[in-house]
Design a protein around this nucleic acid. Structure first.
Lengths: 219, 219
DNA sequence: GTCTATATGAGGATAGAC
DNA sequence: GTCTATCCTCATATAGAC
């Protein structure tokens, strides 16, 4: 009883215009339609109330199914979360490792591309990204380790971009570790407050944060 | 069963050197010793596993009490969380509204003082601050509104400091809303990664982030 | 592949002794 | 103010029919 006192209903989840991201295109095309709908429903529920406050009934009711139907597609609730985490972190990594951000680019251009793409991704997928950032503690130890690996590989692209600029003299002689963390903080923390219906579309915010990132490494 | 698969034991919580903050001096002196110990235990549990994954047994066992003992001091688990939220947000607000940050100061000095104090507070109390940032959704609607008010009042000090510098020409003509959000993101997001045994003591990180904040408003 | 029904057990909260 | 014992709800997951 007390556990649910602050909860929102499923209808709230569906209607809330602030949770306007229905995770379009986040899931593998090979997944059955129903499985993808369940994942999208889980994303909204987890983002709104948290993993542990979300029941299998919440997830399935929003798709018009009984709780038992979920177990045909996923062996457990934790694996639903893990699928979301995997998809989200893989996409975010793909954003910064994409050949559209060439290794050969000028250090400032490269940092700008990485920050703007990473930021825009988090903005566009802010609901799923919120789950990816807030619910790490709910994963099993094994799944957590797997996600942590993806995060480290993503962070490396940021650190390398800063390191390169410092090395070739395009940036000031900044503390790479601390500055890199600051840049990641800016992009990640937006999942706490960003809304698609706000004034900044994802790409515009990406540009803005890329500008800020360059200010952090300027003499 | 599945709900607890990724959990840590109470002993992990006590032993983990990364959760080295025992919330010293956070609670009102008027609270009985036992109540304060319960709050500190709850902070560690909530920070580690989240509010919903923490049981009243977790909280009390770490203090050597039975679950029933908690209800002598607090009427519900949610009120334990609310007490933590109130204390944390009030202290953070006090940090930036303190007379040690005079209204009359030079705009850059004032912004520097606000950012460094707010940042250092989050670093020193990073475990409690993590609960304050991550568990807002677990509050009842009424309690949530009360905490939101404290947060808005805190944010105003940041926005006013930036606004003033822009108005009197000490800062560039930046987008106040977006830049203020960026500064808050830097200070708040550190609760995700900060550890007291790392290389940066709270005050040093505060100085560093104050420097970054000024870079964001420089021409 | 979806349903209804249910096994199983965890967890918030309370009763009542000391 | 703390304990032991327990109530009662609710959630994950499964069984078995369709």
């Amino acid at each position: 009883m007390a556990r649910r006192q602050a909860r929102f209903t499923t209808q709230d989840l569906v209607d809330d215009p602030r949770l306007d991201d229905h995770s379009p295109g986040l899931w593998s095309e090979e997944l059955p339609e129903v499985a993808r709908r369940l994942l999208s429903s889980a994303v909204r529920c987890f983002a709104k109330n948290g993993y542990h406050a979300t029941t299998t009934r919440d997830i399935t009711a929003a798709v018009g199914l009984s709780p038992a139907a979920m177990y045909v597609h996923f062996p457990s609730k934790e694996l639903v979360l893990f699928e979301i985490m995997l998809a989200g972190h893989r996409r975010a990594l793909a954003c910064v490792s994409d050949p559209a951000v060439p290794e050969t680019a000028d250090a400032a251009d490269r940092l700008r591309a990485i920050v703007s793409r990473y930021t825009a991704w988090h903005a566009r997928h802010h609901v799923a990204a919120r789950v990816c950032q807030f619910e790490l503690a709910a994963l099993t130890a094994e799944h957590y380790a797997e996600i942590l690996d993806l995060r480290h590989r993503t962070n490396e692209f940021f650190r390398d971009a800063v390191t390169r600029g410092v090395a070739d003299g395009s940036f000031a002689d900044v503390d790479v570790k601390r500055v890199t963390r600051a840049m990641l903080s800016l992009s990640i923390d937006l999942v706490r407050w960003y809304r698609l219906d706000g004034s900044d579309p994802p790409e515009r915010l990406g540009q803005f944060y890329a500008d800020l990132a360059l200010k952090l490494v300027e003499g």
